[in-house]
Design a binder for these strands. Structure first.
Ligand code: FES
Ligand code: FES
Lengths: 144, 144
DNA sequence: TCCGAAATATGACAAAAGTCATCTTTTGCT
DNA sequence: AGCAAAAGATGACTTTTGTCATATTTCGGA
């Protein structure tokens, strides 16, 4: 469904959000350990998200990643997926036609369109703030 | 969402089904032309589907691929996706956790589970027979 | 029986995704 | 000023996915 980069990116961001919520900055090695992901790859993805201004980074001693309460509230999974995997999943044809167009629909178009809308809605209504609540409560997990 | 192999496979099967419905066998070069796909790659995928007994092939002059009315009725997109891409899309965690388990759910689990079920239902209720109706009517397309 | 048409099998190759390692830059602290 | 800790940048490498090409097998028909 999503790329590995996207999966790691979301999990990393959620972990940063949990820590930032508790007032702590977090370093990449800690993130990778806590979400069980490759360190360097995770770093690359976080860089993308820093550029996209979703998360902020601080270099040097006692540096690390952090995310503001404001960003937690306004950033949705839809944003993150679009940044990392691009908009294709929200727009492209399920059967691989060049464009997904009501004018020349593929045989699956109308049904697929529904499911895709559900997915989109789900991602658009999932903010980081909401998602970390379960993690803080210990009822949901970022690794197994 | 689906791999290219899967997209080509579905489109190829639908084209075979349309032709078989009209009593014609169809050769690989014709399929590739009509669904706008690479010939050799499409051949490989069709071989997989022949092994899985979804479609039948006949070698030699006037050979080609064909699919019975019975198979068109009973074969769903869910079957095809599972044959080509495997069962991961129906079962794996949206955030890449090793297993998708109610016991140790990821923060997205419950919402994701819903969407995934919708997708599954959609694919399970889409038989080849139903899907080719639009193609025969000219209202849906296998290439643009 | 021989020829040609077709699927099948195999492997080389290219592109993309994912992983790993190394070096550079920035910055707080002593 | 110098050290060490951290992100940032870069590139090599591996694996997976997708593509292309070539040989082999099967079989109908002249
Ligand atoms: S045209 Fe295929 S999903 Fe819209
Ligand atoms: S555990 Fe992540 S989707 Fe079920």
């Amino acid at each position: 469904m999503f790329s590995k980069a996207c999966e790691y990116g979301i999990r990393a961001l959620l972990y940063v959000a949990v820590k930032s919520h508790g007032g702590e900055r977090v370093i990449i090695s800690d993130i990778a350990k806590e979400i069980d992901s490759p360190v360097s790859f995770t770093a690359k993805i976080l860089q993308q998200l820093v550029k996209a201004a979703v998360v902020t980074s601080v270099k040097g001693p006692h540096g690390g990643f952090e995310i503001t309460d404001e960003k937690m509230k306004t950033t949705t999974l839809a944003h993150i997926v679009e940044i990392i995997d691009g908009p294709a999943i929200f727009r492209s044809c399920g059967l691989g036609l060049g464009v997904c167009d009501e004018g020349t629909p593929c045989p699956l178009h109308f049904k697929y369109h529904n499911v895709r809308s559900e997915l989109k809605k789900m991602l658009e209504t999932s903010t980081l703030e909401k998602l970390i609540q379960g993690v803080e409560r210990g009822s949901t997990h970022l690794k197994l």
